[in-house]
Each structure stands twice: as C-alpha cells, then as structure tokens.
Deep mutational scan, measured.
Amino acid sequence: VDNKFNKEQQNAFYEILHLPNLNEEQRNAFIQSLKDDPSQSANLLAEAKKLNDAQA
C-alpha cells in the first residue's frame, strides 16, 4: 500500500479489498478513487459497504 496513506486510509483500503460481494470492476473503481483522493477514504468505505450489502 502506498505510504502516503494514513492508518484510517489503509484500513479503508484493506476493508474495500475484502468486501465479499463487490465484483472486480467495482472493487477496482473504489481502490482507484481511494488512491486519487485518500482524504475521501471514510466516504468511499461507506459507499463500498452499502454496495456490498445491496449485492449480498
């Protein structure tokens, strides 16, 4: 993981990586967004979790 991520951002990265119901395309999009703007990690994680739950 890129060293410019802080602890919260790293946690978001790993959580998104391991959400079971996202397809690869969705997962990659969230990860790319996280890399583009790490400050949005909490929002991105919340969105990813919502999508993950919706696809459960």
Results as ranks from 00 to 15, higher is better:
F13D: 01
I31W: 06
L17A: 03
A12P: 01
S41H: 14
K7H: 09
A54W: 13
E15P: 01
L19A: 03
A48W: 01
L34T: 02
N43Q: 05
F5K: 04
V1C: 10
Q32L: 15
N6H: 03
P20M: 12
L17V: 07
L19H: 02
N6A: 03
A56N: 13
Q26A: 04
A46I: 08
S39V: 08
K50A: 08
A56M: 13
N23V: 05
N23W: 14
Y14G: 02
K7C: 11
F13W: 11
L22V: 05
R27L: 04
S33D: 06
L45V: 08
D2M: 04
K35Y: 04
E15H: 15
P38Q: 04
A54V: 10
Q40R: 13
Q10E: 10
D36F: 14
A48Q: 00
Q40L: 11
A54K: 12
L45R: 11
D2I: 04
D37A: 03
A54L: 12
K35H: 06
D53R: 14
S33T: 13
K50P: 00
A46N: 10
N23A: 03
D2G: 05
Q9K: 01
E47D: 02
D53L: 15
D36H: 12
F13C: 04
L17D: 03
N43F: 15
Q32S: 08
V1W: 01
A46T: 09
K35F: 12
A54P: 06
P20H: 08
A42T: 10
I16G: 01
S33V: 08
S33F: 13
V1N: 08
Q32N: 11
N23S: 03
A29V: 13
Q10I: 08
N6P: 05
L44F: 11
K49Q: 09
S39E: 13
N11V: 15
R27M: 05
Q10P: 01
Q40K: 12
N3A: 04
D37P: 00
A48F: 02
K50W: 15
A42E: 11
A12V: 11
L34G: 01
F30E: 00
L44W: 07
Q9P: 01
K7Q: 10
K49T: 08
K7I: 08
Q40M: 13
N43C: 09
E47S: 11
Q10Y: 06
D53N: 12
L44C: 07
Q32P: 00
N43I: 14
K7G: 10
I16H: 00
N43R: 09
V1H: 11
L51M: 09
L45M: 06
K4M: 14
V1T: 08
F5H: 11
R27T: 04
N11E: 13
L19E: 00
N3I: 04
N23D: 06
N28P: 00
E47H: 06
Q9M: 02
E25W: 08
Y14V: 04
A54Q: 13
V1A: 06
A48N: 00
L44Q: 05
L34P: 00
E8I: 02
N43L: 04
E25P: 08
Q32R: 14
K35G: 07
S41N: 03
L17F: 13
L44V: 05
Q40S: 09
S39Q: 05
N6D: 11
N52T: 02
D53V: 07
E25C: 13
H18A: 13
N43E: 11
L34H: 01
Q40V: 07
L19K: 01
N11R: 15
L34A: 07
A42V: 11
Q32K: 06
S41P: 02
F30G: 00
Y14T: 09
Q32V: 10
F13R: 06
V1R: 03
N3C: 11
Q32I: 14
N6F: 02
A29R: 03
E47R: 14
N6W: 03
N28H: 08
A48P: 00
S41K: 02
A54T: 13
Q32W: 15
L34K: 00
K4R: 08
N52M: 02
D2H: 03
Q10K: 08
S33M: 10
P20T: 11
Q26R: 03
A46W: 14
K4F: 10
K35C: 06
N43P: 03
E8W: 04
L45I: 03
F30N: 00
K49S: 09
L51V: 11
N28R: 15
E8P: 02
N21P: 00
L19Q: 03
D36K: 09
E15R: 15
N28Q: 14
L22S: 00
D36Q: 12
N21L: 07
Q40A: 08
N11I: 14
Q40G: 06
S41Q: 02
K35S: 06
L17Q: 10
N21E: 06
K35L: 10
N3F: 01
F5C: 14
R27P: 00
A29D: 05
